[in-house]
Design a protein around this nucleic acid. Structure first.
Lengths: 118, 118
DNA sequence: ATATTGATTAGAGCGTACTCTAAGTCAAGT
DNA sequence: ACTTGACTTAGAGTACGCTCTAATCAATAT
């Protein structure tokens, strides 16, 4: 059971951000008698997953929706599957955009090299 | 020579955005005697390039920097090359992140399918 | 006993990239 | 002459995702 500071450190995000995620209903940690937050293994695993989703531009709102479904129970698993499948399609689209841009830049850079060394 | 509305239409962005890009020194169109903006082929080509850069998360500030170098003349081409090469590395990093996430989601989705059909 | 450290809260503020509003000008069509 | 529509400006507002502030509390270290 980690404190907010330890959890932030471990995940490479700020304690501010963890409180923000709680306000957004993305993670709801346990509380100590004094009111301090405590994050257990399941919170950490979930947060690592959230961070992966964020890295791929999934909006907070969509993550919150997914979290809400997961909190509702097993009967929402099909909805969650659909959400993830849709996000996977968005990742594929991003990959294509990036690959096209990468090639475009490659050509542009080659052009510059020719120009500079001429 | 296109008006701001025609240019916006052609590029799939808003006239507001074109004025914003001008304020940010990213494109400086010609002006009619009455003050209306006019975009020529070179503006359009440059804007298409800008849009490609934006699609790959290049910040407006970096694009502005690149535009400023280009406006300065041929002697900045090496700096521009470096800017593009660096951005290309960022695209590669994004590609790796997305590929990892894609695989992670593939596994997660496969897990859901097993669960749902059990 | 005091100081430091790390936590709490509500709510304000920030950076990015737009996006829109208000008030107005101007040219063309009926 | 009037309307329509596209344009102009400065500046305000929006959405997102944090990020920080202020005031406070509680446990530990000296």
């Amino acid at each position: 059971m980690l404190t907010i500071g330890e959890t932030a450190e471990l995940l490479g995000i700020s304690a501010h951000t963890l409180r923000y995620y709680e306000k957004e209903q993305i993670v709801v940690p346990h509380r100590e008698p004094g009111g301090d937050r405590r994050y257990d293994e399941s919170h950490i695993g979930w947060l690592k997953f959230v961070i992966k989703l964020k890295e791929t531009q999934m909006p907070i709102a969509a993550i919150r929706k997914y979290a809400a479904l997961a909190a509702e129970g097993d009967h929402t698993s099909e909805d969650r599957l659909n959400l993830l499948a849709e996000h996977k399609r968005s990742i594929r689209a991003q990959l294509e955009t990036l690959q096209a841009a990468d090639e475009m830049l490659e050509r542009k850079i080659a052009g510059y090299r020719t120009f500079i060394h001429s």
